[in-house]
Every structure is written in structure tokens, then in C-alpha cells.
Design a protein around this nucleic acid. Structure first.
Lengths: 111, 111
DNA sequence: AGTATATGCAACCATTTGGTTTCATGTTAA
DNA sequence: TTAACATGAAACCAAATGGTTGCATATACT
């Protein structure tokens, strides 16, 4: 179990990238199967350029990878970045459990 | 294991709220122990009003709860919302595993 | 060679975000 | 009953966000 340490900037980028439904859907789709940007663009009611920008945001957060294939750019979802975000949220659970433990101790002292 | 269904709007709010380091720190602090808004404000190099706004964003995402106590408002982190976000990211893992399974099937057919 | 397709990129625009200051109101304490 | 403290809320501002259109370039097809 490797402890990934993400910088504040990286965490900002990951959550900011996930805070948009179109981008979450692109992640979902490209975790299922690779797709070119124009294939993705067909799925949404917005311009190609808009989808292109969303992909750029996801790539900056390392949530997807972009690989050239001929004239296309193949987008593939990256499960590792998502796992790291999940682990991060898991740390909050640990922090919270600390509070509960301290409350329990408080309640049981001089019983 | 209850399957929480969050609307796109709710998910947007949760991830947007988590996409700021000050807000993540407020969540962390208030998961450890409750704090008033002015107690929180002392911790950051920004105005009281700015911290107040951050708390409002977190409350809208249900990541913290705000309870009046005298003239103060006591802020307490809500581990449930974070757990739901974590579960949501877990679904992407499941989706991704589907891709891997299909790739395995592809590789093993007409072997 | 010429045309169609896929992408990149810049300029532009409206809205949102993250901060500020100021003022009003409610609560506590002397 | 004042004074101090905690909060709420409005107006304002600069920068970021999420979209657009237009144009340039690279690749593929006939």
C-alpha cells in the first residue's frame, strides 16, 4: 500500500476537474473504452473546441492520457489518479475516526 | 451497503467544494473538532468574510453542518458526505475493471 | 493534387469564484 | 446600558471558467 503524496495544486486540479458533469462523463467513457476527441465531441451538445478544453483540463489533472494516433488523439481514462483521489478522501475518514475516539475516551473517563 | 444516489448538481457541489485547499483544511479541522467561524478565521490569512463564504460553500455541499450556539455558529465536518464522494469514485474503479475484463476476454478468445 | 477530417489555438464573451471593505444586527459581558 | 464580539449580507473587483467562432495545420482518402 503505497502512500501517494499529492501536492495541494495536484489535489486542486483533480477535484476541480471532477467538479463538472461533462468531464466526469468523459472520464467514465474513457475508462470503459478509448475514444478520440471527435468521437467524444459527438456525445455532447457543445462545440468540438469546448470538449477539447474539457479533455485538456482532465489531462492536466492526469485523469486521462492523450496519445496521438495518426491524425487523431486517443483519450484513455487513468484509474490511478481516481484511486489517489479516493485514498485522499479515505484520509478524512481516518481523521474523523480520531474525533470519535477522543469523544469516546471523554465519555468513559471518570465513569 | 446503501447505494446513495447523488444528483449531478450535488456531485458538482461536493467536488467544487473540495477543489479549494482552504475549504479542504476547514473540513479537516472540523472533522477533528468543532469550531466557530471566527475560530476558523484566525487560522487563515484572509478576512473573516472570506472564511464565512468558504463555510457557506461547504455547507451547501453538505460537507459541514452549521449549528447556532449563542452568538456563534458551530461548524462540524460531516463524514457522510465525504464517504458518498468516496463511493462515487469507487464506481469509476468498477467501470474501469469492466474495461480490463473485456480486454482480457479479447486476448483469450481464439487463442 | 485536392478535399475532407481531426486537432490546436487564439480571441472573445458572460458568468462564477475568491477575495475585499463596509455596514447592520444579534448576543454576551462589564 | 454600553462596549465588545460573532455573524450576515451587500457592493465591488480581478481572475478563472465554460462556452463560442474563426483560422491554421497535420493527416488521410480518392
Amino acid at each position: 500500500m503505497v502512500a501517494y503524496t499529492l501536492s495541494d495544486d495536484e489535489v486542486d486540479r483533480i477535484f476541480k476537474a471532477l467538479a463538472d458533469r461533462t468531464r466526469r462523463d468523459i472520464v467514465r467513457r474513457t475508462l470503459i473504452a478509448e475514444a478520440s476527441i471527435s468521437e467524444l465531441a459527438k456525445e455532447y451538445e457543445m462545440s468540438f473546441a469546448a470538449v477539447q478544453k474539457h479533455v485538456a483540463v482532465l489531462e492536466a489533472a492526469d485523469l486521462v492520457a492523450r496519445t496521438p494516433r495518426g491524425r487523431e488523439r486517443i483519450i484513455l481514462g487513468n484509474p490511478d489518479a481516481i484511486r489517489r483521489a479516493q485514498q485522499l478522501l479515505g484520509q478524512y475518514e481516518t481523521i474523523w475516526r480520531g474525533r470519535i475516539d477522543r469523544l469516546d475516551a471523554l465519555l468513559s473517563e471518570d465513569k
